[in-house]
Write a protein that binds this DNA or RNA. Structure first.
Lengths: 224, 224
DNA sequence: GCTAATTGATAGTAATACTATTATATTTGC
DNA sequence: GCAAATATAATAGTATTACTATCAATTAGC
């Protein structure tokens, strides 16, 4: 992927971490290696002890950055959605036609991510795999309402709201813009998951992508 | 809900359990109380020890029915989808028009479940809440491919395939029947979740239901 | 070069996720 | 109605998880 801006730093809600991992070498190492380790062994069996061993660092040092592994996952997801939003904005820049803008936005959120070499400690392609496999777990907890109140999911909701605005602009009479937008984003991740694991209940494969399915869906749904 | 048949027993894949919980009093108690306890404290903090205390039984006795709590959840979900399939078949019976059949099928899978008094040890309304909150966790594990091969998700896939068949019958030229069907089922659960926890990114509320959204969506998508 | 902050090492606790063993009920088969 | 078979309960034990606390060693900032 080509670099868009060389010195951006993606900001994540301060309440998610104890100490900002972007401010130190160890912090960045935690981000970088946790992505590889979660992808490798899955979030359920991932522990700070295993991560500590992998980065040659102490378990207790990791606790100084994140309260627990759930918060670390929330951080990674929040970072991801922020990065997606940033790409959406760039891809839509200078495009006036709202349908074309929507198509570009949907393409960004439904497509496989490529690595952005300008951010060396985050492998976006693997992070994308983690989002497909694990993002849903950040929402499905008993703490969802508290965490939502704290603003943990603001960026995710902001990405959805950008799509909502485009849908409204294209068809102000369409009755379900929010549900359509949120179901596209969640559904795109789900179709990617099915493509890899439950192939019989999706049309997506090497030739047909979730992007194709959703571009077709919005075309049909919002045609006048 | 009215009783459809008085002596049905919903069959669940034998590989999911160690001993069939439907064959004993304790087994049924495990099913009954696990539904209440998972709803109450959430699947993540649910343990067999806590369940044992709740039913006045020993932790080790529960292990004789289920290898671990994940398998118990898979069992409950499998039971749920089987029950949904059974209701779908009944609601579509003697209806010939494929669009009307599809509407009824979608209504069954997207609607809140009511309690079926004929099955006393399963509270379907609460089980429905568990499915909304926890079903996704049965799929998102590192063991998904093995468990899929073992047939753990056959009933879920069968429910989706019934919808796929109806879509194909209505519009044989529609290119993405499987993706549409799987995204409706997953999406309906997701919209229910958003309605309760992330209200700003859904149109669903007390007046508008996920059923309304999805009936509208298939109407638009499959109109000729 | 001194001080403050960060990290590492070690230890410890309570809970989780089991397994194994043995004792005690309960059921069933005849 | 009794013995045998089966199911359940009680207890104990292990390895791992998910932390917290303390203190020593290292590094960074000025």
């Amino acid at each position: 992927m080509q670099t868009l801006l060389s010195n951006i730093k993606i900001k994540v809600n301060e309440k998610i971490y104890v100490k900002d991992p972007e401010t130190s070498v160890l912090g960045k190492k935690i981000l970088q290696e946790s992505i590889f380790l979660i992808d490798e062994i899955g979030f359920d069996t991932f522990t700070f002890k295993k991560l500590g061993e992998k980065i040659g660092s102490n378990e207790s040092s990791i606790y100084r950055y994140f309260e627990n592994k759930h918060k670390l996952l929330v951080y990674l997801c929040s970072w991801y959605w922020s990065w997606i939003e940033y790409q959406m904005v760039f891809k839509m820049m200078n495009i006036d036609d709202p349908m074309e803008r929507l198509k570009r936005a949907i393409t960004v959120v439904t497509q496989k991510s490529e690595e952005d070499k300008s951010i060396p400690h985050i492998n976006e392609a693997i992070l994308n795999k983690i989002i497909i496999a694990e993002f849903t777990k950040t929402l499905h907890t008993k703490e969802i309402d508290d965490e939502n109140r704290e603003g943990f999911f603001l960026i995710y909701k902001s990405v959805i709201n950008r799509i909502v605005q485009l849908i409204i602009e294209i068809d102000p009479n369409y009755q379900y813009p929010k549900s359509l937008a949120s179901s596209i984003i969640e559904g795109a991740l789900h179709q990617c998951f099915l493509k890899d694991h439950l192939k019989t209940i999706t049309d997506c494969n090497e030739k047909i992508s979730p992007t194709d399915f959703y571009l077709n869906l919005i075309h049909i749904t919002l045609r006048k």
